[in-house]
Every structure is written in structure tokens, then in C-alpha cells.
Design a protein around this nucleic acid. Structure first.
Lengths: 350, 350
DNA sequence: AATATAAACCAAAACGTTTCGGGTCTTCAA
DNA sequence: TTGAAGACCCGAAACGTTTTGGTTTATATT
């Protein structure tokens, strides 16, 4: 048992008490000095700060959390399904969100755990709430009618959803402006002369799917074109089989609006397999700007919304919730930007 | 202020005390019943368990942590650099690790924070240690001589590194068996008749780069071939420019062993730009089996080691550390498997 | 000189656990 | 009938903070 640090007067981990003794003042005063109260003299405050620095005091979070009832942590329960391509979005989002949170407030912990959709999803949330591990939640991949939302509302736990629900007016949310985004993307293909444009959508369980559909329909209707919608999971080779089928059909579509870059990538791949030029013969637009869309050949056009914006919006709502109480739910719509890459570069389909 | 839950006798959040009062026994006994001590009668234990269930008691973690000094959390301080392609590996690893940790022990929290390489890296670790937020660390992307390792050793905090260091004998680590893996990959190209095989390595700051180099050298020396090594970051378009240069040089290499799939992908891309068939004219092998290597066209051969194995190895070492104390550092080498895809499918380069 | 005001400080309670060092009551052997 | 052993239980302290509701001292006001 050697003493590690060589600072004078150092034996154990310093506490408020040891600092108080060291300075011959009370624990209360030390605490208040450090918390910036104004009933402590400038001189005392300075001494406390010095002592903290030389003794290397760091507050014990457990004790603080016990007494304040706040945990200074925010939780995110990931709905990952192993091997599912959708994990791409989540894993990148997570990294960015964590990073933003940290730069925004390094004292907020991010606790990551898992609550896959299904049986135990709600009970996992409940346990998390009850143990008071976190002050607030970020809820990912919201469904239209999402039981998690109700649970959190009932328990009066602050949270922000990433994606709207059918009861969006009751809770904080951020979301991409899927209607405008998909309308714009569809319109861009219409402008290029496409007549047969399909939407390859995600399952309608997610609300966002409805909104994307709406955007697509808006553009198609305005142009007097017949919409054609397909729904696919982003896993296994379902999107791939579907793409092959579509491309081989007579009177095959030439424009593809895809709800995910992964789907878009499968369309491109299927086209190449069939000897169809994914840039000249058809146009493909994906969504999310995942690495696959820039790394692939050809590069894939995509609807992008910055993780930075997502994260910042979530964090600012969370902060508002955790400090002064929010009287009314807040929300934020984030714009999509159409990134034109090779799969939509040709100017005129005839 | 309405009462949310409708259970009888429920007003506030239940505590040990409320259960004790409810059952007319002492707090001590309740606590001991729940902790599985054997000095509580079967009957009492049953009653306690029932009460816990009906009242919906969940222990307050802050209180427990305060008294035990354990946090039941493990921390991972990510060395992310925004926009860096290496983040691909990290983000996927993180998702998998979290998932494994959760299935292994759902009561262990995973706290994710950020400590980018540089100035504040060590102080970030120090603050994390001092605040006793976590019981143990996972240290990613170890360097040859890694100050984080020393810091953690000095503070006697349990940790496992992902990747060896020069002082590996002093700490727990897991790592991929880079020597064997890269030797095997190189040998596989030699077996196909390649004479000019280059290694496109990562900066030697990381120990793993040395080991990969060693594996490559082993195979080359054994075959009497002249080694040729290049070092590149995995960011910007450095690997791309380097690839173009190499492929355009006279007496250009035909075999490419790359320390990352991202680099391999750049080689492939450069080849295609130059009209070189990345499958027939050259062979390329990457590393890590990132999504880009399966999603790309052509698909890229790669050295794969399963995240599952990584995670499990780390977790089992961590568990050993956190329960009975480990007397001697543990480690685990994880095998690479060569996944042959299109970029190494041709059988004979002449 | 007495009183009000302000500045600086503090003792003690509280948060909800775990654990230490006992205690009481059976039961059973001597 | 006594004593020991075992089974079961409990009071109180401890963990390190924050906060409440003061007290003390010095200065200003009447």
C-alpha cells in the first residue's frame, strides 16, 4: 500500500469533510463555496478553491445524487436488433450524439443500455426509471403508437423522442422533415423527366414511414403521376430481391426513392447485376447519408440531415427540461438536404 | 398531483424502510433478505419478496453506490475524431459491446463518454476515476506507450485495453492476433502467385501496426519476396492518393494488404478509376469486415474477427476483476479469419 | 445606547442503502 | 435444569453530499 500521489497531507480520497478540517471551517461552507452561493466571503472562497486544487478533491457523485435526487445522466435504450442493417444509422447516431452531449456539457453522463422492441421493452424502461439511473431519456425509432411514450409520460420522466408519434403534441420530439424532404426528392426526379417513380418505404410501423409516403404522394399527385409504393425491411436480402423483381418487370420504374441508403444500395446492386446502368438508365435516391452511400460505386444520392443538428436539438430540449421546467412540449423539425451524387446525376431520362 | 399507480398502499416511491414498516420488520432484515443472506427465515424472505413485488420496490442506486463504493458501471471513453473514417470501427464496436454487456449482465451500466487523443485526454480519465463513476474501464485504440495505461495502473482502477501496449504484461488486454492474421493474408496472396505485395499500414503510433507489419514481414521473408510498406491515415483522401500513385507506378504491386477496409476500399476505387480490374488485375485484402467491404462493388476480402468474441473476452476479464480480485493480468488473443470475397477471388496472377 | 440590517458562517438533518456487532428465542444434549 | 448451539432478527453507524434554519459578528440607523 503505497501512497500514490505525493501531495502533502494526502492519505485518503479527499472529501468535503477533509477540506473543511484542513481549512478549519465547516463542511457547509465548503459546499456552499463550491456551489457558488453568495453567502461566503471572497477570501474563504479562494481558500476553498485552493484547497480543492492542492488536495485534488472531486465530489462523490453517488452522495450528491442521493441527496439531490438527480443523476446528471441521460439514458438511451437502444432498439438494436443484431445483424439488422438499420443498426448502421443507430451506431453512427450514437457516436455523434455522445460526442455532442459531451462537448455541450461534459458533466452529463450518457448511459447506454438496450431495450429491443418486444416483450421486455417496457419493463426494461420501467426498471430504468425506477432505479433513477437517469434524469431523462432519448427514445429512438418511435412507432406510430408507442407504448414507451405513454410509460414515460405516466412516470413524468423527461424525454425527447427521435421521431414523431401519433400523440406528438403531448411530448418533446425532434424529427426530420420527412414530408418536405421526400416531396423534394421525388420532385427532383420528376423534373428530370421520370414518369415511373417508385417509393421503397420502410414498414409503416414507424410514423416516419407515413410521412415519407405523404411527401412522395404530394409530388406524384401534383405531377399527375401514378404512385407506386413498396414496403421492405432493411434486412436480409428482401430489398435486394424486391429490386430485382421491380427492375425486371415490364414497364419497370426508372426512378427510385428509397427510405434508406441501404435500400438504395440494393437497388443499385440489383441494377448492376441486370446490366442496367444505375446512373444512366435509372436514378436512385436514398436517405440518411450513411457511409455506404459515399463509399459505394456509384456514389448514391441521398437525403441528408446532419447528426449535429439532431443532437443539438435533442440536447437543447433536454437541458430546458432538466433546468427550468418546461411548461409545454417542445419540438424541432430538421430539414433534409438532397445530396446529388452519381445515381441522380444524369439530367434527362427520355 | 394524481397518484399514478393504483396499487394499494402506494404513495411515494417505496424504499427499504417502507417495506420494513409494511411488514413490521427491520430495514436490516429486508435488506438482508433481498441480498440473499442466510440468516433470514424462508418465510420472512418470501414475505419480503412478495412485498417488493406488490409495492414495486426498486433499490436506489445512488444510495447503494454511496455505501458500497461500487458503481456497477463500466466506462468507455471514446477517442473519436469527428469525420475520421476510423469511427466506423468504433461505432460498430460500441453497439456490439453494449449489447453483449447487457445480455451478460443487465445490471451493469455502460457509461459512454469522450476523451479524444490529445491534451485533455489524461485529465478526462482522471476526472472520471476520481468521481468514481465507474468500476472499470475499457480502453480503446491503445498506443505503443500509452499514458492512459499508466494512469489507470497508478490509480488501481480495473481496466481492459482493446489492443496491446509495450507494457502488456502489466495489464489486462485483448487483441486480435495481428501477426498470424496478416501473415496468413499475405501468404494467401503469395500462394496465388503475387510477387509484389504491399502492406498499407496505419500509423505506427498504434502497437497493432507493428504487429501487422511483423506478420506481413514474416510471410514475405519466408517467401523471399521484397517487402514494401506504406503508412497512411484513414482519413481525408490520403489513402486514395497513395493508391493512385502506387497503381500508376511502373512495376506496380499486384497484391494489397490493407490495415483497414476503408483503405482497401480506396485501393479498389483507385484501381477502377485507372481502368484496372480490382479482382482480376490485382488482389486486395482489407481488415475489420466493416459494412463497406460487403456493400461495395466488388465485395472486398477482409480479415475478420468477431465483435462478439472481442466483447465476450473483455467482459469476462472485467467480471473477474470486479468480483474476486485478479492476481495476475489476463489477456486474450482473438483470431482473424480471412474472408475471401471478390477482391481475392481469382486464383492465379501470372 | 439600543436596535435593525447585512455579511459570514455553521450544526444538524436528510437522502436510502449496507453492514457491524450485537441480541433473543428455540432446541437439544448433558 | 442448565448451558450451548443455532436460527433469526435488529439498532445504529456509516457512506459524502446538500440544504434548512438558524447564530454570530460587524456595521449602520435611530
Amino acid at each position: 500500500m503505497r501512497i500514490i500521489k505525493t501531495n502533502k497531507l494526502m492519505k485518503k480520497k479527499p472529501t468535503l469533510k477533509s477540506i473543511a478540517e484542513y481549512l478549519n471551517i465547516s463542511v457547509t461552507t465548503v459546499s456552499r463555496a463550491l456551489s457558488g452561493y453568495d453567502d461566503v466571503s471572497p477570501n474563504t472562497r479562494r481558500q476553498v478553491e485552493e484547497a480543492v486544487a492542492t488536495l485534488g478533491y472531486v465530489p462523490n457523485l453517488a452522495a450528491r445524487r442521493l441527496v439531490t435526487g438527480k443523476s446528471d445522466a441521460i439514458g438511451i435504450l437502444l432498439p438494436v436488433s443484431y445483424g439488422d442493417m438499420r443498426d448502421h444509422f443507430l451506431s453512427h447516431f450514437l457516436l455523434h450524439f455522445g460526442r455532442s452531449l459531451h462537448t455541450h456539457n461534459p458533466n452529463l453522463d450518457l448511459i447506454v443500455s438496450y431495450a429491443p422492441e418486444g416483450e421486455e421493452e417496457l419493463s426494461t424502461y420501467q426498471r430504468f426509471i425506477d432505479s433513477q439511473r437517469v434524469d431523462a431519456f432519448v427514445v429512438m425509432r418511435t412507432r406510430k403508437d408507442d407504448a414507451r411514450v405513454n410509460l414515460l409520460l405516466e412516470n413524468k420522466v423527461p424525454f425527447v423522442t427521435h421521431g414523431r408519434t401519433l400523440s406528438s403534441e403531448k411530448h418533446n420530439w425532434i424529427d426530420t422533415d420527412a414530408i418536405s424532404g421526400f416531396e423534394f426528392a421525388t420532385q427532383s426526379l420528376i423534373d428530370k423527366g421520370h414518369k415511373k417513380i417508385v417509393l421503397m418505404n420502410l414498414p409503416e410501423r414507424m410514423y416516419t414511414s407515413d410521412l415519407r409516403l405523404e411527401g412522395y404522394m404530394n409530388a406524384m399527385n401534383k405531377a399527375g403521376l401514378t404512385p407506386d409504393v413498396f414496403v421492405t425491411e432493411v434486412s436480409d436480402n428482401i430489398p435486394h430481391r424486391l429490386s430485382l423483381e421491380l427492375l425486371k418487370s415490364q414497364n419497370a420504374p426508372t426512378g427510385f426513392i428509397c427510405a434508406s441508403d441501404v435500400i438504395a444500395h440494393e437497388v443499385v446492386k440489383a441494377a448492376k447485376e441486370l446490366g442496367i446502368d444505375p446512373c444512366a438508365d435509372i436514378n436512385v435516391i436514398g436517405c440518411d447519408d450513411l457511409p455506404v452511400s459515399t463509399l459505394g460505386d456509384p456514389t448514391i444520392s441521398t437525403l441528408k440531415s446532419s447528426f449535429e443538428d439532431h443532437s443539438n436539438a435533442i440536447i437543447s430540449i433536454l437541458q430546458a427540461e432538466m433546468n427550468g421546467h418546461l411548461t409545454v412540449p417542445r419540438n424541432k423539425l430538421i430539414n433534409y438536404e438532397l445530396i446529388e451524387r452519381q445515381t441522380s446525376e444524369n439530367k434527362n431520362i427520355s
